Simulated scan of single mutants.
Amino acid sequence: MNARFGVKRKVALGVTALAAIAVSAVSGSASAVTSENQGSSDHWGAITRNTIGSPVAALRNGPFGSFGVKGPSARPPYGRGSLGIEVADKSTSLTPPSEQVEFGNEVDFYGDRVLALKQVGFHVFQTGENVSYGGPGNMPNIRFEINPNLTAAPATTYSSMVWNSAPSPVTDRWSPYLNATTTGTWYLTGNAGTVTGCTLTAQCTFPQLKTALNDGGAQPTIYTAGVGKGRDYMWIGAVDGLRINRTVYDFEADGVRTRRAG
């Protein structure tokens, strides 16, 4: 799968071949805020540790449409750009053979409290083809890498906290805001999932997840935050307007801008 959006590429060594990962160089300072409550963040890009195969995670213009679609859903919800994501389902020598990509930030959220998360979500450009590949639930996700700090498992210092989005209510156009705190389900990877009961096979609501993590010990903390897809079905689409608490991350072709949520 080739990069299509004129972005900088990083190359990671896979099991049997070099895997090219399309990523965008992001410019600006997280502290630069304009009179329109806009700033920029320079710490976003493909998290190579969490990327498998040759997927695409590229800042781009659009998508606009699809053809015949008019009004607000025919353009990205913020600005003119978005984060384009492309993953294939049968393209590696691994088990499973599907790809995975994560576009995230390994700096700005480090040490933040998981239990302080109040608002999380995004807008998605879902297509009918994606639904045909894996059903209505074939959607990108939001992932926080965390230290769960569980009293019952003090040696467990790493888990991925993953949101599986509910299906988009529309296809071939931009969705409304999909709220990860009230829709979809969450799970924790590894031992933290087993201890809390929020596993891939027994997923939790957002309030249930926070209750399970709030077990009376030290506060769980965040390592990284990001959006991505895999490893399951082929998916080609886009994400924009990632919200984390009071900040909306506006993905544009020339970088990631920050906006204060209303």
Rank of each mutant, 00 (worst) to 15 (best):
T127N: 02
D42L: 11
A212N: 09
E99Y: 09
V131D: 15
W186M: 09
S93E: 15
N2Q: 15
V11E: 14
P72Q: 12
V15G: 09
S93Y: 14
D240Y: 05
P76V: 10
G193I: 12
F144H: 05
G68C: 02
Q100E: 10
Y233V: 01
K10E: 14
G190Y: 11
Q119L: 07
L94P: 03
N50Q: 10
V23D: 14
Q203C: 03
C204H: 05
G137Q: 14
V256L: 04
Y223C: 00
G135N: 06
I244T: 05
N147T: 11
R231M: 07
T34M: 01
K118P: 04
A20Q: 15
P140L: 05
T182E: 12
S91E: 13
S165M: 13
H43V: 01
S175Y: 11
T95I: 14
T51H: 09
S160Y: 01
D112N: 15
A166D: 12
W44M: 11
G81D: 03
Y233D: 12
F144M: 10
G184C: 04
A218K: 12
T221M: 09
G255R: 02
R4K: 11
R173V: 04
T185F: 00
Y187C: 00
L117D: 07
Q203M: 15
Q119M: 09
G228Q: 05
A17V: 13
T194P: 02
L115T: 01
G81N: 01
G237S: 00
F206Y: 12
Y249D: 08
T181K: 01
L188W: 08
Q219W: 07
S168G: 02
N214P: 04
I85E: 09
W186N: 11
T51I: 11
Y249L: 10
A253G: 04
A74E: 13
T258C: 03
S31L: 13
V69Y: 14
S40Q: 10
A30Q: 09
G111C: 07
R173M: 12
G6C: 04
R75L: 11
G39H: 04
K229P: 11
T181M: 04
T182M: 04
M161F: 12
N50I: 01
T95E: 11
G134Y: 07
N105S: 08
N179P: 01
A180M: 04
D250M: 03
R9T: 07
L13W: 09
S160D: 10
R113S: 14
T127A: 03
I142E: 12
